[in-house]
Structures are given as C-alpha cells and as structure tokens.
Simulated assay, not measured.
Amino acid sequence: MARFACPSCGYVYDEDRGDPREGWPAGTPFSEVDPDWPCPDCGVREQQDFEPA
C-alpha cells in the first residue's frame, strides 16, 4: 500500500493504517478518501494536494 504526504506540514496518510479518527479505517485506499478532505494536522491542504511519500 502507499503513503501520501501533506506538502504544507508533512502529515502522512498511510493506506495500511488509514486514519480512523478521520473516518478512514485501516486499508482505505487514498483514492477513496474524499477529495475535499482537509489535512487533519494543518487544515490547509485537501486530499488532491497530497503527494506520494
């Protein structure tokens, strides 16, 4: 599975771990994360702004 990083703060979304506090259980592919989902750490960037890590 892949990892994606916020270019503003460095938060990393790891598909293996998901982000249960944000509603994305472990194993959720990044492509299934809502494109309007903001970075949970900085709130500046949205899903489509994240870069492969």
Rank of each mutant, 00 (worst) to 15 (best):
Asp36Pro: 05
Ser8Leu: 09
Gly23Lys: 10
Val33Asp: 08
Asp36Lys: 15
Pro29Asn: 12
Glu32Ile: 00
Asp34Val: 03
Tyr13Ile: 01
Ser8Arg: 15
Gln48Pro: 09
Ser8Asp: 14
Asp49Ala: 12
Cys9His: 11
Ala53Cys: 06
Pro7Gly: 09
Thr28Leu: 03
Asp16Phe: 02
Gly18Cys: 02
Cys39Met: 12
Arg45Trp: 08
Val33Gln: 09
Pro7Asn: 08
Ser31Gly: 10
Trp37Cys: 14
Gly43His: 13
Thr28His: 07
Cys9Glu: 07
Tyr13Cys: 02
Gln48Asp: 13
Glu22Ala: 10
Ala5Asn: 11
Gly18Asn: 03
Asp34Ile: 03
Glu51Asn: 04
Val12His: 06
Gly23Asp: 08
Pro29Trp: 02
Asp49Tyr: 10
Ser8Met: 10
Glu51Tyr: 01
Pro40Asn: 04
Trp24Thr: 02
Pro52Val: 04
Ala26Ile: 02
Asp34Lys: 12
Pro25Cys: 00
Ala2Gly: 10
Glu22Leu: 03
Gln48Lys: 15
Trp24Gln: 02
Gln48Glu: 13
Gly23Val: 07
Val44Trp: 05
Cys42Gln: 08
Gly43Lys: 13
Asp14Gln: 06
Gly10Asp: 08
Val12Asp: 03
Met1Leu: 11
Cys39Arg: 14
Pro40Arg: 06
Pro25Met: 00
Glu32Asp: 09
Glu15Trp: 01
Arg21Cys: 02
Asp34Glu: 08
Arg45Thr: 12
Pro29Tyr: 06
Pro40Phe: 09
Val12Trp: 07
Gly23Tyr: 13
Gln48His: 13
Pro20Leu: 05
Pro35Thr: 06
Pro25Gly: 00
Ala5Glu: 06
Thr28Val: 04
Pro29Val: 09
Ser8His: 14
Pro29Ala: 13
Pro25Gln: 01
Glu46Asn: 11
Ser31Phe: 01
Asp36Val: 10
Asp16Arg: 15
Pro25Asn: 00
Glu15Val: 03
Cys6Leu: 06
Gly43Asn: 07
Arg3Met: 06
Pro35Gly: 14
Pro52Cys: 09
Ser8Asn: 15
Asp36Ala: 15
Pro20Thr: 03
Val12Pro: 03
Asp14Glu: 08
Arg45Pro: 09
Gly10Pro: 02
Ser31Glu: 11
Arg17Tyr: 08
Ala2Met: 11
Phe30Arg: 08
Glu22Lys: 01
Glu46Asp: 08
Cys9Gln: 12
Met1Glu: 04
Trp24Gly: 04
Asp34Arg: 14
Glu32Arg: 12
Val12Gly: 04
Arg3Glu: 05
Trp37Arg: 14
Phe4Arg: 11
Phe30Val: 05
Trp24Ala: 04
Gln48Thr: 13
Pro25Lys: 00
Asp19Lys: 14
Phe4Gln: 07
Ala2Tyr: 07
Ser8Gln: 14
Pro29His: 09
Phe4Asn: 09
Tyr13Thr: 02
Asp49Lys: 10
Pro20Gly: 01
Phe50Val: 06
Tyr13Met: 04
Arg21Ser: 12
Asp41His: 14
Cys6Gly: 05
Pro40Gln: 05
Glu46Ile: 10
Arg17Asn: 08
Glu32Phe: 03
Asp19Val: 05
Gly18Tyr: 04
Ala26Tyr: 03
Pro35Cys: 12
Glu15Gln: 07
Pro7Lys: 10
Glu32Met: 07
Cys9Asn: 12
Val33Ile: 12
Gly43Gln: 10
Asp41Ser: 14
Pro25Ser: 00
